[in-house]
Amino acid sequence: MKRRKTILTLLAVCLLIAGFVAGPRALADDDERGEGRERGERNERSGYKYTVPQLPAYSQECGSCHFLYLPGFLPARSWEALINGSDKHFGEDLALDAAAKTELLAFLTANAAEKSGFKWSAKILKRLGNETPTRITELAYIKKEHRKIKEPVFKRPSIKSRSNCGACHPHGSQGDFEEGAVVIPAK
């Protein structure tokens, strides 16, 4: 009788541990169900590995103001439009000199969605058609993926805007935008 109780207890403990380990993963694998769910504590990387192309000028000129979007988020023609229009960058003059423009454009086009090898590039391109988008947050694929996140969530003080990718994708700067690595801050 005592032995049976011990076995039952052990079984219960094993189930509990299995639930903790497998539960979040099982949920995370489900692309549709997972969205809109808010997790405050977890901050784990998914298994996805990607070597993010780096350029100091890109980090300084672009990453000082906003999330350092991976070049693979946009096709080359979009990066051309952005850099050539950098004096009117969503209403702001970025004050890029000719040398900076050349350097940035070479880097961005060389690593653009068509040739990046970044997991989400193909998905973004597939929904593009002939457009030349410049607003990453408005890309059809990105909008679809965030459709279940309500607008007030983006307005939370620690998030502030849709372009603050890193607020909810803590490993986004390393290219990890997997569902399982998302943490939506509560405030």
Partner: peptide, 9 residues
């Protein structure tokens, strides 16, 4: 500080 889109300065 913080930029208008939330990046820390």
């Amino acid at each position: 500080g913080k930029t208008t889109v939330g990046k820390v300065i």
